[in-house]
Computed example of a mutant assay.
Amino acid sequence: MSTLSWLKSSFSDAGGNNCMEVASDGSRIAIRESSEPNAILATDRTALRAFVRGVKDGRFDPLLDRR
């Protein structure tokens, strides 16, 4: 996965070191934090789609409310 073309959100600031980046090698999706470019999480499209739907549906909100 070293020759991936990384994409980041248009909502990222000009500094570029506070956002998530994604890339695809065809069968896998790679995700990384721009400030930690060597720490890459890889998953497949089905799992990423389920995660994004869960975030949009608020399924993970209780985890954010813990203090």
Rank of each mutant, 00 (worst) to 15 (best):
A14N: 08
R49I: 02
G16T: 01
R45N: 09
N18F: 01
D57K: 15
T43G: 05
D61I: 06
K56S: 14
D61W: 00
A42G: 00
R59P: 03
S12D: 07
R32E: 00
V52R: 15
A39T: 13
S2E: 08
G26K: 14
N17Q: 04
G58D: 06
S27Y: 03
F51N: 08
N17R: 01
T46C: 04
L48V: 08
A39V: 13
T3M: 12
G54H: 07
L64Y: 06
C19Y: 05
S5E: 12
A23E: 04
G58V: 06
E21Q: 15
R59F: 01
W6I: 09
G15D: 08
L7W: 04
R67K: 13
L4N: 08
R67T: 05
S5P: 01
D61P: 00
S10V: 05
D13R: 10
S2R: 12
I40A: 09
K56T: 10
P37M: 10
R49A: 14
L7Q: 11
L64G: 03
R45Q: 13
G16D: 01
T3P: 03
V55L: 12
A47R: 12
D57Q: 15
V22M: 15
A50V: 10
A30T: 05
R67P: 02
A23D: 06
P62C: 07
